[in-house]
Amino acid sequence: MTMIQVSDLSLTYPGTRDPAVDGISFEVGQGEIFGFLGPSGAGKSTTQRVLCKLLQHWSGSATVMDRSLTAWGQDYFAHVGVSFELPNHYLQLTARENLKLFANLYPQDVTRSEDLMAVVDLTADADTRVGQFSKGMMQRLSFVRAFQHEPRLVFLDEPTAGLDPVNARRITDHLQTLRADGCTIFLTTHDMHIADLLCDRVAFMVQGRLALIDTPRNLRLAQGRKQVQVEYRTGEGRRQELFDLDGIGGNERFAELLRSEEIETIHTQEATLEDIFIRTTGEQLL
């Protein structure tokens, strides 16, 4: 089942000449984690804001949950969750009060708040004023807020930014659980490791257009070399050799190395998402 279907979507901001989003088309299936990647200013946030019904006056068509985006009213957000890159909470309220306030705005019963706080390890701080939270704690609270009403579709912007590895892991593990439960996640990130780890498919945006869209595995294979690099140690120091993967079973030199030398590492040479990002966008990741 298709959750998001975008066709020829374009948007030009008032007062600018070049479109921020220029005729992009893509689909996102139900239960898919879809990564939206690209450098700053590429049009990722604009696309996400269109799909969050924040921006209007776009052209093309966008269908979400089998209904045209323009036909949805504010009830859209009863089924959709949004987590922003920068945490935005009421600092005078506690974490629990923040969640309760937002929960009360939904027509459905919101019962997942406590479970989700436990998932992101916020239970002990639930009654602490958010003004006393670290950035990471606020980020985790944003995560809970986006999911507490059990949305079918969630837009996440840099969900692990500012998190320590343990909490980042908690979030990514839970996202995989939610995917298994059928939740669709539209993920905007600069973190290629997270994208590679989580996303079923990724799309690279460059200057308002979609440059690439595929599964991370297919992109890695297509953009990489079908070679294996062997690193070994000899009496004269460390050395490395490259072998074609095709016919490697019959490669005598490769077999001899494995038999006679002290092997330190063996790596296939498929591209990483970071390599693909740099190659596609022409920009270095920070």
């Binding site: 969050c52 924040l54 504010q74 009830d75 957000f77 009863a78 959709v80 949004v82 922003f84 920068l86 935005n88 909470h89 009421y90 600092l91 937002f102 705005l105 939904y106 027509p107 807020r145």
Partner: peptide
């Protein structure tokens, strides 16, 4: 503080 945009991405 950005809470206004957060509220508008709820049914409110």
């Amino acid at each position: 503080k950005g809470t206004l945009v957060a509220l508008t991405t709820t049914p409110a």
